[in-house]
Amino acid sequence: MRAPLLAVQGLTKTYRSGGREVKGLDDVSLSVAAGETIGLVGPSGSGKSTLARVVMRLIEPDAGTIAFGGENLGALNGKALRTVRKRIQMVFQDPSAAFNPRATVADVLADPLRIHGLASPAERPRRIAQLLDSVGLSANLAARPVHAVSGGQRQRVAIARALATEPELIVLDEAVSALDVTVRGQVLDLLVRLQRERGLAYLFVSHDLAVVRAVSHRIAIMDRGRIVETGPAGTVVADPQSETGRALVAAIPRLHISHLNREASQNA
């Protein structure tokens, strides 16, 4: 196997709350290969979002290492950190909370281009149109206030913004959880297409095991700050080894069509 794109080792993060210590992360190790999707799933408070934020260095761990592309992320600062950061992007659940409320779609997409010096002011409109096109949006949307577009369009804009720096890894933290179901499928299709075209790796964080299963190569299940199970997506779902894994599989709502049909035909 090639060297992983992302490798975290022994990550630990303890929160203190009202005199109690809560282990947000407890000796977590995980790797993501280039072009791979790792689904990170677990109940509320299991530590999955904390792990996502530690990978982004939005939260500093108490212990452990984060290696990205062979570099120790924790040891980097300033310009060197900015250079690596370009290669990792994040998309959150609620894009309206992630955007400046007064911004237009073009403003949102211009930010990373400007901050990372990726396009001169003259080149930006063309680059913004390209980014919109890559997520299936019309260039006409650029002038619209970002709050005036639909939820699905807004999440596409968030993905386009993440793509602006041509990252190798995108951390998706409940990125489709707030979308309507008919829109959710389209955004998942988009993510899968972008991965195929660009060899992107995803760390796909969600509470919904069924959605995770649909897009992930491997699944890691978290509970109480620990990874309790890791394996190929199909295997984890078909035969979960951990108690949390079994509980998650059992809790997924099933469409009770066949069972109901049987009842209906018996009653007929």
Partner: peptide
């Protein structure tokens, strides 16, 4: 029908090729 088709369950076929990249 569209709502039902949009449902993603554990038995929904994966959107990705199964083999490791």
């Amino acid at each position: 029908a569209r709502l039902l088709a949009s449902h993603i369950g554990l038995d929904t076929p994966p959107l990705i090729a199964e083999e490791q990249p």
